[in-house]
C-alpha cells in the first residue's frame, strides 16, 4: 500500500482486478495537502468533539442549558441581558439568552449535539437508502431499473420542505423530535445518492473484472458486494460529505420555521429563529449561532470538497482549473 501517488490508478479505470478502494493512506496524504480541507477537517472535528463532550463542557463552565436566571435580564426592557455583549461574564462565557437568562454557552454546545446528530443520522438514512436502491436499479432488470428510476425522479422532484413542515406539524409531540427530523430529512434526501450509485454501477457492470467474476460462477450477491460495491465507495463518500452540511442547513431551517426540535431542547436553528426579533436589542444572541452554523457548514463543505479531490484527483483537478 505504499504505491506512490503518481502511479496510482484512477478509480474505475483499472483494467484488471476490482476498482481499487483507494488506499486510505494516499487519500489521507492528499487531504492533508489541501489547506482548505485541513481547515474544514480541523473545525468539523472540533465541532464533533464539542458536541460529544457538551455536558462535560457546560459542567466545566458550571452551567446547564435549561436553568433560568431571571435575575440576569432586564425585565423592563423586554428581557435584554444585563451587562455588555449579551451578559458575557466569567460565569457565562457567551452571555445569557434574552428573556430566560439561560446560559448561551451551554445552549450552544448542546445545540451542536442536536444539529450534528440530526445531520449525521439523516445522512446515514440517505446513504443507506441511496446505495441500496441505486444498486438494485443498476443491477436489477430493465423493468426494475425503470420503476426505481421513476421513484428516484419523484423523490428528487418532491417539494420536500413543504411536505416536511406539514408532516412535522401533524406528528404527535410524543414522538422524539430529533429522530423524526432524521427520518424526514433522510427519506426525502436519498435521491441524489441513488442516482450516483446507479450510474456508477452501470459503468462498473460492464468492466472486465465483473465479467470475469460472473464467468467464474460468482453468485449475483457476491458480484454486487465484492465486485461492484467497493467501486461506489469513493463517490458515495464524497457525496455523503456534501449531504452533512446540507442536512444541517435543513434542520436549522425547519427549527427556524418552528417545526424542528421542541423547547427546552436547544438547537442552532431554533436559537437563530428566536434571535431574529433581537437583532438590534441583543446582537450577540444572533451572532453566536449564526457564526457557528456558518463555520460548521463551511468546514464540512470544504472537507467534502477536499475528500472528493483526494478520492478522484481528476475531478478535483478540473475543479481547480475551473477556479
Amino acid at each position: 500500500m505504499s504505491v506512490p501517488v503518481e502511479t496510482t490508478t484512477r478509480a474505475g479505470t483499472t483494467e484488471d482486478g476490482p476498482p481499487p478502494a483507494r488506499s486510505a493512506r494516499v487519500v489521507w496524504r492528499r487531504l492533508l495537502a489541501d489547506r482548505p480541507a485541513v481547515f474544514g477537517l480541523a473545525f468539523a472535528g472540533l465541532a464533533v468533539l464539542v458536541a460529544l463532550t457538551a455536558p462535560l463542557l457546560s459542567a466545566l463552565e458550571g452551567q446547564d442549558p435549561v436553568t433560568f436566571h431571571p435575575e440576569l435580564v432586564d425585565s423592563a426592557r423586554g428581557g435584554v441581558p444585563l451587562g455588555s455583549f449579551g451578559g458575557v461574564s466569567a460565569e457565562h462565557w457567551l452571555g445569557v439568552e434574552p428573556q430566560t437568562g439561560r446560559d448561551l454557552f451551554a445552549r450552544t454546545v448542546h445545540g451542536a449535539q442536536i444539529s450534528l446528530a440530526v445531520a449525521v443520522g439523516a445522512a446515514v438514512v440517505q446513504v443507506g437508502l441511496g446505495v441500496a436502491l441505486g444498486l438494485a436499479a443498476g443491477l436489477g432488470g430493465r423493468w426494475l431499473d425503470h420503476l426505481l428510476g421513476r421513484v428516484i425522479d419523484l423523490v428528487i422532484a418532491f417539494p420536500s420542505l413543504i411536505f416536511s413542515v406539514a408532516l412535522l406539524a401533524v406528528v404527535p409531540d410524543s414522538f422524539p423530535r430529533p429522530l423524526l427530523l432524521m427520518l424526514i430529512l433522510g427519506l426525502f434526501g436519498w435521491g441524489g445518492t441513488a442516482r450516483i450509485v446507479r450510474a456508477q454501477v452501470l459503468s462498473l457492470r460492464s468492466r472486465d473484472h465483473v465479467a470475469a467474476a460472473r464467468l467464474a460462477g460468482a453468485r449475483p450477491a457476491r458480484v454486487a458486494f465484492r465486485e461492484i460495491l467497493p467501486g461506489v465507495v469513493a463517490p458515495v463518500l464524497s457525496y455523503a460529505a456534501i449531504l452533512l452540511p446540507s442536512n444541517m442547513i435543513a434542520e436549522a431551517g425547519l427549527s427556524f420555521l418552528g417545526v424542528g426540535v421542541r423547547p427546552p431542547t436547544p438547537s442552532w436553528g431554533q436559537m437563530l429563529s428566536k434571535a431574529t426579533t433581537w437583532f438590534r436589542g441583543d446582537p450577540v444572541y444572533v451572532l453566536v449561532p449564526a457564526i457557528l452554523l456558518f463555520l460548521t457548514v463551511l468546514s464540512f463543505s470544504l472537507l467534502a470538497d477536499g475528500l472528493r479531490t483526494a478520492l478522484d484527483p481528476r475531478a478535483g483537478g478540473l475543479a481547480r482549473r475551473a477556479e
Binding site: 431571571p70 432586564d74 425585565s75 426592557r77 428573556q99 430566560t100 437568562g101
Partner: peptide, 15 residues
C-alpha cells in the same frame, strides 16, 4: 411558581 421568570418569558415587565 417563579413569576419573575414567567413574566420575562412573556415579554418582560413592560408587557
Amino acid at each position: 411558581v417563579n413569576r419573575q421568570a414567567v413574566i420575562n418569558a412573556a415579554g418582560g415587565s413592560s408587557l
